[in-house]
Design a protein around this nucleic acid. Structure first.
Length: 606
DNA sequence: AACTGTGGCCTAACAG
DNA sequence: CTGTTAGGCCACAGTT
């Protein structure tokens, strides 16, 4: 395995291969750290040395972060300095293959960036942020926009050092994720360097192709089909309030198990007008699925679930932390992800095995199942607080076991008490609640606290309020807590970072028809030479003025503290976030907006 | 002509 | 994949 890092420096904005030579290439193979440096005149020699090193080392796997782009950068540089980019085993150049992946003939070319892109929690998608999300600690780094400054200073060695560290970091990450990639490749049949690049849908499809082949089934062509929406999972309306001792019953892998149980599959579906003597019939649309042979979906799921069961069994007898444990754990994770993907795959119009009736029937049987469970729970005298798709929130503890037993014996579905809340708060909204887990800790679902598009100051306030109310139920304490934060904000005693609102770009800035705040901020950035890509997160701060909010939203990099519109943050961020919780206790906005009492609390935080 | 309120629409982010 | 919530823009209608 060879990990590689390319150090590129853009004198004006992001580096361009047309005029910015490669400054250094660092490689690490677990033992040897190598670096090829710019000689001050041309990058011809460092590229040649690097290519010779690759030839000598002859790695099976080349791994990088953003290496897909690096190869095309290197290709352009090679053209300019007249060096053939022979890195493949047949001396071929890297070339584009499927899913936008770049292949190096004879070697496995892994781009960890594609794995990072799958993690929606990341905001900047830098290697450092990605490493941190995997639990690796990262020391101070020179930020990219300062590279040119360092390049022309006596501190240039720190830049080279950093590139070496990056190569080592990439290697370490590969050591953590390699097993998972190998397992995913083995199960799906996708080449290993495609598994991170391919979407979950393509991964499921690769596996289905294997399964169909082994069953002697024909593989459907990819044909454009009309998109017809269908109804999904059932969500119960919660009653606003605080509840004590609430248990959550979860159906385990509900959709996969339903597909298995009713043999729901494109090849077992009986179209309208055709005869079927003995079929499973979906509860609402009356779609029919034959029983006389097992469909591709069911047989794929059967294999996945059986395999996972046996892997988990083997895991019990393997020492934690050992290589075998790591490999097995990676395998059971890969198996679970694939099983859970199949329902989404069935409803994806681009899928070879797409059939709306399949996805529709799965959702129907899901709603049917949960309705039956709710009905039974009520019959048993249990109170239903809430439920979403495959879970029900129930009060009381005694009869729970009976209910779970009934679900397993009468509905033929696996279910278990997943968690217990000692106290839980519901707003009038679905998919938004917070509670204290009996086991330990606060859990927040759907509320602003866990959303990425609210300013930190608002999220922090809401978390404080929620915690206070769940732990002490002391309304006046929560109110004075909010009043103090409002006072601090109004006097500008809040860090600027806490005022940034982040939004992800889903198309290029010019393509938007509505001039929303983040769009205008993105346009301003790109006007100033920043490159804004689809998928990038744009951070903006609302500044003072009387025009529309959008026009006052400016990229946080360009805002000075004195320009911040603190009143906007009070009215549109802090108060709404706090009110979401406090409304439940009858507090109104005016109460929050009053001056804080000049008691100990008010002075305690100054 | 400027202002205000309303509802539809666009957009994003979450739950499962 | 669908279900759900929510903010802000924008066109429009009615008011001043």
């Amino acid at each position: 395995v060879m990990a590689v890092h390319f150090l590129k420096v853009g004198e004006k904005g992001s580096p361009k291969p047309e005029h910015d030579p490669i400054v250094a290439i660092s490689t690490y193979d677990g033992k040897m750290l190598r670096q090829f440096k710019y000689d001050g005149k041309t990058d011809k020699h460092l590229i040649e040395d690097f290519l010779n090193h690759v030839k000598a080392l002859d790695p099976d796997i080349i791994v990088g972060y953003g290496i897909t782009e690096d190869w095309s950068y290197l290709a352009e540089r090679c053209k300019r300095v007249d060096v053939p980019l022979e890195v493949g085993r047949n001396y071929a150049k890297p070339h584009t293959s499927v899913f936008g992946h770049v292949s190096v003939t004879g070697r496995i070319n892994m781009d960890l960036f594609h794995n990072a892109r799958e993690n929606p929690q990341l905001t900047e998608y830098t290697l450092d942020e990605y490493a941190q999300s995997l639990g690796l600690s990262v020391e101070y780094r020179i930020p990219e926009h300062k590279y040119p400054e360092y390049l022309n200073s006596s501190d240039v060695d720190r830049l080279f050092k950093q590139s070496e560290e990056y190569a080592k970091l990439v290697y370490r990450i590969w050591m953590m994720l390699g097993d998972f990639a190998i397992q995913l490749s083995q199960i799906t049949g996708l080449p290993m360097d495609h598994v991170f690049t391919a979407s979950p849908g393509h991964r499921a499809e690769a596996y289905l192709i294997r399964e169909a082949y082994s069953l002697g089934e024909l593989i459907p062509q990819r044909i454009e089909k009309p998109y017809v929406p269908y109804v999904g999972g059932l969500v119960l309306q919660p009653q606003e309030g605080v509840y004590e001792n609430v248990s959550v019953i979860d159906f385990s892998s509900m959709y996969p198990n339903l597909m298995l149980k009713y043999n729901i599959s494109p090849d077992t579906y009986v179209p309208e007008g055709e005869e079927c003597g003995d079929c499973f019939v979906s509860p609402e649309s009356k779609h029919r699925f034959r029983k006389d042979y097992k469909g591709v979906y069911a047989s794929m799921l059967q294999k996945l679930l059986d395999a996972r069961r046996s892997v988990r069994k083997r895991l019990e007898n393997v020492k934690e932390g050992s290589v075998e444990h790591r490999v097995l754990d990676a395998r059971q994770k890969a198996l679970k992800i694939l099983a859970n993907t199949l329902y989404g795959y069935a409803g994806w119009v681009g899928a070879r095995w797409y059939l709306r009736e399949v996805a529709e029937s799965v959702a129907e049987w899901g709603r049917h199942t949960i309705r039956m469970a709710i009905e039974k729970a009520r019959e048993m005298g249990l109170k239903i607080i809430y439920g979403d798709t495959d879970s029900i929130f129930v009060t009381d503890g005694e009869k729970l076991k009976n209910l779970v037993g009934w679900i397993e014996s009468e509905l033929g579905m696996e279910a278990r008490v997943d968690k217990k809340y000692s106290r839980i708060l519901f707003t009038e909204a679905k998919k938004r609640y917070g509670g204290l887990l009996a086991a330990d800790g606060l859990e927040v679902v759907g509320l602003e606290v866990v959303r990425g598009d609210w300013a930190e100051i608002a999220k922090e306030t809401q978390l404080g309020v929620l915690k206070t109310m769940l732990e002490t139920r002391d309304v006046s304490k929560a109110v004075s807590y909010v009043r103090n934060i409002i006072a601090e904000a109004r006097s500008g005693r809040v860090e600027m970072e806490k005022m940034i609102i982040w939004k992800r770009m889903t198309k290029p800035p010019e393509a938007y028809e509505v001039r929303a705040p983040h769009v205008l901020a993105a346009l301003e950035l790109s006007k100033r030479g920043w490159r804004i890509d689809v998928g990038d997160k744009v951070g903006y701060i609302v500044t003072r003025g009387s025009s529309k909010i959008g026009e006052r939203a400016r990229p946080y990099q360009l805002v000075e503290k004195k320009d911040i519109d603190y009143e906007y943050y009070v009215r549109n961020q802090i108060v709404p976030a706090a009110m979401r919780i406090l409304k439940v206790f009858g507090v109104d906005e005016q109460t929050l907006l009053q001056e804080p009492k000049k008691g100990l609390m008010a002075f305690g935080t100054g």
